[in-house]
Design a protein around this nucleic acid. Sequence first.
DNA 1: AGAGGTACCTGGCAGC
DNA 2: TGCTGCCAGGTACCTC
Length: 271
Amino acid sequence: MPELPEVETICRGIAPHISGKTIQHFVLRQPRLRWPIEKRLEHELQGQTIVNVSRRAKYVLLKTSAGTLILHMGMSGSLRILTSKKAANKHEHWDLVMNDGTCMRYHDPRRFGAAVWHEGDINQHRLLRELGPEPLSDDFDGEWLYRHSRGRTTAIKNFIMNSHIVVGVGNIYASEALFTAGIHPARQSKRISAERYARLAVAIKQVLKQAIYQGGTTLRDFQREDGRPGYFAQSLNVYGRRNEPCPTCGTPVASRIIGQRSSFYCPDCQH
DNA sequence: AGAGGTACCTGGCAGC
DNA sequence: TGCTGCCAGGTACCTC
């Protein structure tokens, strides 16, 4: 489910409800996520105060003075803030209950998400230390993409979805950014000029910023912390729009599988 | 080093 | 109505 804009939306949504609050207890109902949630987490988290809520790539980071809780939403995860008691359904795998009664509840039908406790420098954690730059940072630009793409035969869509190159670009926004930049998703990465990479980097930043502004994309089940959907779906140009007219030229949008994932593009505008 | 495939899970939907 | 097959927003890990 969530790509960077959705995770950013989640972060901004939960931060005011849990920042500065102390964890009363962690309630674990289903430990079998991507990696088993360790039993000791209940003990580690109890009494800890959340000093900071942030995001790195698609990871949500809850920092306390003792360590950091690293959360990942996988394909179908979401967080809800509950202010009154409510029975958990079968996909609501854990709760973080704060001292003022606020409850942050994790929901994840497919269970590809994760919750991992880390003490020490968060950037040295194995999940984070090999990651590429944040797409919205100044470290990421066309020159970076161009430099790392030399000699690479992989399709450009796979390349920008590779988290060692740049983080946070998932299947939806990869198709959208390539449409905006006029680049065919299957083009070999090494066969794209510096000028076109400059345009692509701008397109990635633009599409992610716009999606964050609209609260992310709700296709099936993405929900914000308060249960509202994201509104970017109405702004999608090509993703999920096979056979619909290209918004630029009217040619029917094409789709094909690239790197085992559905990809959408305009066969006339993108080369 | 890079490319490609597999695995982890459940739910929704189309087609029969 | 019920079955089967396919598809879905991610990514670590494996082999070649």
